[in-house]
Each structure stands twice: as structure tokens, then as C-alpha cells.
Simulated scan of single mutants.
Amino acid sequence: MSLLEVSGVSVSFDGFKAINNLSFQIGDAEMRAVIGPNGAGKTTFMDIITGKTRPDEGRVIWGEKSKSLLSMSEAQIAREGIGRKFQKPTVFEDQTVHANLLMALKNERGPLSVLFWKPKPDDLARVEALASEIALSDQLARKAGELSHGQKQWLEIGMLLAQDPKLLLVDEPAAGMTPSEREHTTSILVEAAKTRAVVVVEHDMEFIRRLNCRVTVLHEGSVLAEGSLDHVTSDPRVIDVYLGR
């Protein structure tokens, strides 16, 4: 059964069809890489899932109860369990790594509960576990602004995992990383995909190969090919529009 089903979705901006009759499915605990040339619709695709962009037609169905995401606000979609990581890491630079992870934990968000909230032992244990998962256990007392680019990326992934999402959308996580940072990012995402769905938009083919997952190729707003990396990279159409450039 699908966790997310995008069916026949199209969206135009000033007459340009950014997404054109796109259909896409992903299951509960699955890793998927999405590739394609610039302008293929990768970002718009994620914008539609997260409620940032409303399509002109089509359906976006979520979860066991087959809810329509198109009737929900961005905040409601986030509460449903869809987390998104943008290309540029957005962390609280003046706060410690520990404080960033603590703030991100899934807890009551009402005005009173926020005002009087104090971390419980379970919360502190969860922060320790997350820090270990993202290889920042030895950085908990440091301000997030002092971290390297790769470490900030890991912290942001950790902050998303703290909210326990069912689907994680990750935009170009390997950009600007050292080879060893890329390797650890692979481990974080592969581990995360054991218990939730993870969609990675990426250009780095070596990084995608290490993810060892199904690949969806977008072109001109629709799915051009789908399958293993070897399958899609040997497809003449994919070579023509993406790899041959």
C-alpha cells in the first residue's frame, strides 16, 4: 500500500507547465531518489506535496485513511508527518546543537504548553539518541553557527527526524559536502528509510548509487523513467535529456 500517491497532477506558472500530468507513489519505509535536469519540476513536485504550491488538477492522497493533502494548509501537512529539508540548512545559529534538537522534538505546541514546557528525561534521552544518529554527540554544547556546512545539514536532518515524520523530503543533501561528509549523510538517510519514506532530490550520481534505491527521473514536469540507477541511466531518453548534457 502507498503512503503517498500523486496522481495526474499538473500545474502551470504564466502559461509554462512546470508539472505535467505527473503520477508518483511511495510506500511506508522506502527510499527513493528523484533526478532530472534543471527545470524538470523537482522543486515544484516537493512544493505540491508540502502545500506550498496548489496544482491546477490531479490528486495527492496521503496515508492509510486516503486523505487529500490538497485540502490542507502547509502547517496541517507538516503535522500529518511530512518533513522537508531545503538545500540551504536552516538551523538556529545562536543556539546550541542540543537546544536546536530539543526545540524540534514532537511535543504539544499550544501557547500554555510552550510557555511552561520543561524537558522530561525522555526528551533528553531522545536528543542524545538523535545526536548519535547524526554524528553530533560531541558537538551538543557548540553553537549551531560554528558547525561546518555538512554538520549543519546533519543537524537539520536531525531536527526533522525529531518530529518523527512519516515522509522525509530532502533537497540536494550532498551539495557542498566533503567525501567523508557525503558518506555519513548516506548512512543517516539509509537508516532513516528503514522506518519511514525518504525522497532525495539530488544531482550527484555517485551519491545516489550509494543510496542503492529506486530512481525516478523527471523531465518537463512528468516521469520520464523509473527503476534502478543502472536501468534509468542506460535509458536512451534519459541520456538524451539529462546525462548527455
Rank of each mutant, 00 (worst) to 15 (best):
R182K: 15
E220G: 00
E191P: 09
M159Q: 11
V11K: 08
G39C: 10
P179F: 07
R245S: 13
V223K: 13
L168R: 04
M159K: 09
D56C: 07
V241M: 03
V200T: 07
L169Y: 07
L168K: 06
V223G: 02
A131F: 13
I134M: 11
Q163E: 07
P165M: 03
I49D: 04
T233E: 10
A78K: 05
S187E: 15
T216M: 03
L22T: 07
I19W: 00
T53I: 14
E226Q: 09
F45C: 02
I188T: 02
E146A: 12
F16Q: 12
R237V: 00
D240P: 04
R32E: 12
S66A: 14
G58A: 12
P89I: 06
R196F: 13
E191V: 06
I49S: 10
R210L: 02
Q87I: 10
I239V: 14
V127C: 02
A29K: 14
A78N: 10
T44N: 03
L130T: 06
G150T: 01
V91D: 02
S73K: 13
V60P: 05
I48K: 05
S180Q: 08
V199W: 06
A197M: 09
Q95Y: 09
R59T: 11
I19N: 01
H203R: 11
V201R: 05
M31A: 13
Q153E: 07
I77S: 12
V6Y: 02
L224Y: 03
I208K: 08
D14S: 14
P165I: 01
A197G: 15
M205S: 12
D123M: 11
R209C: 08
I19H: 05
G8F: 08
M31D: 12
E202A: 04
D94E: 12
Q151A: 09
T178S: 14
L130H: 02
V198R: 04
L229D: 06
A129E: 14
R109H: 14
S180P: 00
M31I: 13
E57L: 10
K42Y: 02
S68G: 01
D164E: 15
S113G: 05
G41Q: 03
A125D: 08
Q163S: 13
A99S: 05
A225T: 02
M1W: 01
V190K: 15
V232C: 05
K166T: 09
L229A: 08
A29I: 00
S234H: 13
E133R: 15
K65F: 12
L161E: 14
L101V: 07
V114G: 03
L105D: 13
K17N: 07
L189P: 11
L160Q: 11
D14Q: 15
L160K: 08
M46Y: 07
G63D: 08
V200G: 02
A175I: 08
L124T: 05
I134S: 06
L4V: 08
